[in-house]
Design a protein around this nucleic acid. Structure first.
Lengths: 343, 343
DNA sequence: CAGTCCAACGCAAACGTTTGCGTAAAAAGA
DNA sequence: TCTTTTTACGCAAACGTTTGCGTTGGACTG
């Protein structure tokens, strides 16, 4: 690459017999140029196979035409990654369509935010998309202080006041899940969450409770179970559940992993799904449909999620006139065999 | 970002009272500078929070300090993506460690190679990693003509003469699979491939046959079955298999999906796994361990795969002295419940 | 002590664009 | 026909670095 001098704006200017600035103007359409010279210039560009040097362009006008995306490598959950990659695809597509490029970086726990910090300070990107897990106070204040466009994927907790985020509608997800169960004829759902403290679990809990109340049921605190993620912990909770609340007829799991373990435990105890107990899981990871029975799931369009994230980022980059409003992606139920009509 | 003038090399030069070139020299360590001024300059850099402008740097020395990675979005197989993302993580880590950035792009069937073409011609990247599915004759000749560093992930077919690629050792994988089966006591394995024509299937077939012969068995052409991917096609082949070759006692599947369908079909026919028939699959996708029974798999370290790809790319970028030799990542068996001792 | 050498740094050009300003020629208005 | 406007383009500076060359001053030779 270094051996061959690339063809520059000057080369084609010389060939056509005009000033480099004229060439620049026809490229950018930024001034009145006669049709004739315009023809000649574009012709010369084709002939010499001219491609603009982005570095030079960036240097003068200050924008790099690339955006950043930080991915959460700390997240070792392979399925979450599968999920994530659809969003990435969408982001990349929007980016490409607008003539931008996509820079991708990891944030490790250790140097949280530092990679990002460098990216913005070294003028490598014009904007950035980052996961909730990637935001820190320092980073946020750096970005806002510099009016640097960014959007976060996932809902931040209350400490973050910005509204430039996009996430699935967890509350609606909770509502849809119980609604589906009730329609199937189940009457006593419980909700298995991993950690009551996280913001998205809280939303799911709210939706769960709300929908039950709307339907004339009166849920108790005991209907929400903090199951953890590991096999034995979940087994314990199941056992406890079956012994204590014998009226329970369905379980909403917060993700595919707990659903899998729940399924295993029930199979072990010879409890049939969906007949005796119905199961529905959040997140329609690819795993869900291959289990036995295939799991009914609360799904979201992750492609859309990424698409929305990218679009709002570019909104912020192009015009400042961004409507400050967070975006919720709607959820829907994918009915499979782990829930079924009870009449 | 545009509002605040970023701090440049001139600012810190002015502050210290030296020439910008001096500052540049201490940054790059490219000339003799007295310890004293060196101290003052680095101090000033910290104080003003200086970050180099990469565009400007790139403009003069011609390298962008970013590499490209094209991902295969056309590949809708969610599990392949899961697989891929570990490689991406590795690539990103190597890239980051060397002070480079990672640009990621999709290639769609339609504009195959065009995105890449632009990236190299517009000087956005110094090198690129691309999947076999992404290479075309045009692209290759463009890259080689410009001496542009690149490495391909996956083994290209014979039409490609370069040796700058890295892939799993498919032949060894084939050998290990039958070896494992034989050690378990199975005597009549068959191999389910998707498409005999692809290069990696050919390697697997070769390993499969070779290992059987080494162990004194004499495999026939019938032991290699082109199963396709969809459910019904696989079901047909299974049926045919069980009717025609009744001595078959084990199946090697070319990926998790066909393994899943094989499993389903056998369950349907009340054939027990691993007792009556053993199953081993290529690719230890996350799915494998959650099936019933969990699948024994031929695994590779995809992180290592990415790491090697990135390292050799940087070898090519930094020094030209790259040893022209393709890299095979070793495979290993993850033993689970779908194969078992038969004695 | 004069000459030589080297360490330490300054000067200015260059990388490939963009863009404000200026200006000639052409078109329009009077 | 003369002035005014507009069209079409040239000139040169600027963006923030790097780097070849030149210039100092002092340390080192002999």
């Amino acid at each position: 690459m270094e051996n061959f001098m690339a063809v520059t704006i000057k080369d084609i200017a010389k060939k056509v017999g005009v000033n480099p600035s004229t060439v620049s103007r026809v490229i950018n359409g930024t001034a009145a140029i006669s049709e004739e010279t315009k023809k000649k210039i574009t012709a010369a560009m084709k002939e010499l196979d001219y491609h603009p040097n982005i570095q030079a362009r960036s240097l003068v006008n200050g924008s790099t035409f690339t955006i950043g995306l930080v991915m959460d490598a700390g997240n070792s959950d392979a399925y979450a990654n599968t999920f994530f990659i659809k969003s990435v695809t969408a982001i990349e597509e929007v980016t490409q369509r607008l003539g931008y490029n996509l820079l991708i970086t990891n944030h490790t726990e250790r140097e949280k935010g530092n990679a990002v910090r460098n990216l913005v300070l070294e003028h490598k990107i014009d904007g950035i998309i980052l996961p909730v897990s990637g935001i820190t106070e320092d980073l946020i204040s750096l970005l806002t202080a510099n009016h640097f466009p960014f959007v976060v994927m996932g809902e931040p907790d209350e400490s973050y006041i910005g509204r430039n985020w996009v996430d699935m509608d967890n509350e609606e997800g909770g509502r849809l899940a119980v609604n589906h169960l009730l329609q199937c004829g189940y009457r006593h759902p419980v909700l298995f969450v991993e950690n009551k403290g996280t913001i998205f679990e809280q939303k799911r809990i709210r939706g769960f409770l709300e929908e039950l109340r709307i339907n004339g049921l009166s849920p108790s605190k005991n209907d929400i179970i903090e199951s953890g993620v590991n096999r034995t912990e979940i087994a314990d909770k199941i056992k406890l559940l079956l012994e204590t609340y014998r009226e329970t007829d369905s379980i909403i799991c917060t993700n595919n992993m707990v659903a899998y373990h729940v399924l295993q435990k029930l199979k072990q105890k010879n409890i049939s799904v969906p007949e005796q107990i119905g199961i529905i899981t959040f997140d329609n990871y690819p795993l869900a449909e291959y289990l036995d029975p295939p799991l009914t799931a609360v799904d979201i369009d992750t492609y859309l999620l990424g698409e929305r994230a990218a679009s709002t980022l570019f909104d912020m980059i192009k015009h400042q006139d961004r409507k400050e409003e967070s975006i919720l992606i709607e959820t829907k139920i994918i009915a499979r065999k782990s829930t079924g009509k009870r009449w």
